[in-house]
């Protein structure tokens, strides 16, 4: 057997690294040029596909009772092992936690906030966009059930200060959903003469959702149909880019494990046919170290 002309170090470790993060296995082996090619090409394809779809094209929708055809695109995509493993974990979390709306909290939440406030002020209604901070607190409701109350402190678009109290029964969107924003539904209350009156509500309000709670989270059937409707042919394009990225990484993983398939480029530069470099004479050419070696 011919001695490798590049130092593959530990091929198993290198291939696992290359599988998890394209380019990392080759970086570990000291093959910098290949590491750059693999990481730039594969991550670019994957990233562009993700950006076309707003990050919604990559997910694991398998599981008990799910048709296997839904897994076909994921099988190709998960050639990128790192994101693929994250998607599988997210799929399991999603099946465990579901899409339940949050109506109670274990601890207070303080977060940035965007949305509109609709207020009934006499004969004129107020409907203005407000940005600022929202504070949500767990509380026991008037019937003894856990509920959420809160407060919004921010500014309207015209610069006026907004400070409103949110009524019992404030609801947050599901913890897990494939969207970087988490919806907030709440009524606004004001005190008039010792009585608490519901005087308005939040509209299109949301707080940021953490990356871990939205990246690669499976879409519901309805969300999937909406994505098709919104993107049209770009849905397929995004799918193709991410699938090809995954499939190309299979080549990179094998290269990290076993070295280049055809040889080390020592045969004549005038050879045009791929098959020529597979000849034993080319593979057994005088050893010359290419790339990193120790």
């Amino acid at each position: 057997m011919q001695e490798p002309q590049v130092n593959l170090k530990d091929p198993l470790i290198a291939s696992v690294l290359a599988f998890l993060v394209p380019g990392l296995g080759h970086l570990y082996q000291g093959r910098l040029f290949k590491a750059v090619i693999y990481s730039v090409c594969i991550w670019s394809l994957f990233g562009y596909g993700m950006s076309l779809s707003g990050g919604k094209i990559f997910q694991y929708r398998g599981g008990p009772g799910k048709p296997r055809t839904e897994l076909l695109s994921f099988v190709a995509q998960c050639g990128l092992g790192g994101p693929g493993l994250v998607a599988i974990i997210q799929g399991r979390r999603y099946r465990r936690l579901g899409e339940q709306v949050t109506t109670s909290l274990n601890e207070p939440i303080s977060s940035s906030f965007e949305g509109s406030i609709e207020l009934q002020q006499g004969e004129e209604d107020l409907d203005e966009v407000v940005t600022g901070t929202i504070e949500l607190f767990p509380q026991v409701g008037q019937f003894g059930d856990p509920t959420i109350v809160g407060r919004i402190i921010g500014t309207f678009e015209n610069g006026q200060t907004a400070d409103y109290t949110l009524a019992e029964g404030t609801r947050l969107g599901p913890l897990l959903r494939n969207s970087p924003r988490r919806a907030v539904e709440a009524d606004i209350v004001t005190k008039e003469g010792g009585n608490t009156i519901r005087s308005g509500r939040l509209k299109d309000a949301s707080i940021p959702r953490s990356f871990w709670n939205w990246f690669a989270v499976p879409l519901s059937n309805f969300e999937e149909q909406e994505l098709h409707r919104e993107l049209g042919k770009y849905h397929e394009l995004a799918l193709v880019f991410t699938m090809i990225a995954g499939l190309l990484n299979v080549l990179a993983v094998w290269d990290a494990f076993d070295g280049p398939a055809y040889g080390y480029g020592l045969d004549s530069e005038s050879d045009d046919d791929d098959t020529d470099s597979q000849q034993p004479s080319a593979r057994s050419a005088e050893p010359e170290t290419v790339g990193a070696s120790t």
Partner: peptide, 11 residues
């Protein structure tokens, strides 16, 4: 690029 990088070693 990726296909040929997996076939050859010399940049």
């Amino acid at each position: 690029l990726v296909y040929n990088a997996s076939r050859y070693e010399a940049p």
